[in-house]
């Protein structure tokens, strides 16, 4: 068996692309950490059939960087009113910036982080989504999250219970 942390993990995406990272970097993932290894194998290959290559590439990029620079824990309540105030590490700010990651990719990353059990990535993407929602009115949130319209009955109930939201819109 390879020395602990020195082995290589190869992740194969749903569309067949392979991404390589060290065991040490892969340790951040609960799924990968707990996955069985063949003794004497220096290279372990794991199929990640739920994650496509564009997303898996970003996930691996995150894991590699996290191995070099740990992400600070995100406090609750949040210690700032903007994303960059809360997340003050430039690399992580940039990693999920609007320029680098569109909304679809963000949700894919969020799901992938959950699937792979990568808590820091899950926190980072959740925080990003949170700030995308923050301060938006109900209709903007519906559009942002592509939520289905409520039925007239549901709308009436929501209006009854949350009248102030309708007033502010």
């Amino acid at each position: 068996m390879a020395d602990e942390g020195n082995g290589i993990i190869r992740l194969r995406s749903s569309d067949g692309k392979v991404f390589e990272l060290t065991e040490s970097a892969a340790e951040i993932s609960e799924l990968l950490k707990d996955s069985p290894r063949e003794e004497d194998d220096e290279v372990t290959e794991i199929d990640i059939v739920r994650v496509a290559s564009p997303c898996l590439e970003k996930v691996v990029e995150f894991m590699k960087h996290y191995d070099e620079e740990k992400m600070k824990e995100i406090p609750t309540p949040l210690g700032g009113s903007t994303f960059n105030e809360v997340m003050d590490q430039p690399w992580y700010q940039d990693f999920v910036s609007d320029e680098k990651m569109n909304r679809d990719m963000l949700f894919n990353m969020l799901s992938a982080a959950n699937f792979l059990g990568i808590k820091p990535l899950l926190d980072l993407t959740c925080l990003k989504v949170t700030f995308q929602i923050t301060g938006k009115n109900a209709e903007e949130i519906r559009e942002l999250l592509r939520l289905p319209e409520l039925t007239p009955e549901e709308e009436a109930k929501a209006r009854e219970e949350h009248s102030w939201i309708f007033e502010e819109a």
């Binding site: 739920r50 994650v51 496509a52 997303c55 949700f107 799901s111 959740c126 929602i133 592509r146």
Partner: peptide, 30 residues
């Protein structure tokens, strides 16, 4: 396969993770 995830597809545990960062006003809007 995770191709195009939308909010409604996310498991409850995930939106819980997201909204734990949200302010009360945003939570109520949701």
């Amino acid at each position: 396969p995770i191709d195009r995830v939308t909010w409604v597809d996310l498991p409850d545990a995930l939106w819980h993770e997201i909204l734990r960062f949200s302010a009360v006003q945003d939570l109520v809007r949701m």
